[in-house]
Amino acid sequence: MIKALHIAVKDFRIEAHAKELLNSMLLFSFLILVVFSIAFSELTSSSGNIAMLGAGVLWICFVFAGTLGFSRAFASETQNGAIQALKICPMSPISIYLGKVVFTISIMLIVEAITVILFSILFNYTILSPLFVIVVIGGTIGFASVGVLLSALVQNIKAKEIMLPVLLLPLLVPVLLPAVSATSAIFKGGDLGMITTYLRILFVYDIVFLAVASIVFEYVIED
């Protein structure tokens, strides 16, 4: 696990120097929010309407900004073939996978936090709920665990920018359904029992996908 953290820290250093990922994800997320705020400008005067729309708007931002991030998750490793050097380092390939997942989750959570702040400014609606934070974290873990695996998988494919969302979005349905439903229920001030059920489904999916992806990752990065 220490080596996974070293990999995540290395990716943060690269991002701190290059400033590619965070800027593009934030800009993309901001643009989606602006488009929605203009499109729904007549509806957003009522907080009841925002409660109906909010979960969808936020998760669309998270999913598309995240997909943009995944497309670059392995760019630094393939640029000069650094993945080959990592592959013969004395560690399990799971460490490479977990390092990338930790980095991706962290970046996504930063983007999501800023997106929520922008959402509250543009839609004049504040959501301060610990449950909402838990749902977003749960959704992000599931999202990143699938996204990092697929990002590694498409690295050697010619049309990887097209293939990644095509493969990713159907696989994300089991994580998006409980995450969006739970967020929607939180926005509407729904039943706690129902939200807890959605959270259970979400975290079970997170565990299953993290476990499966960790096992198959070695074969995904094999030449």
């Binding site: 640029q79 000069n80 073939g81 650094a82």
Partner: peptide
């Protein structure tokens, strides 16, 4: 022949 290095570090 590839450097296996990170250009941004």
């Amino acid at each position: 022949h590839e450097s296996y290095l990170y250009d941004d570090l």
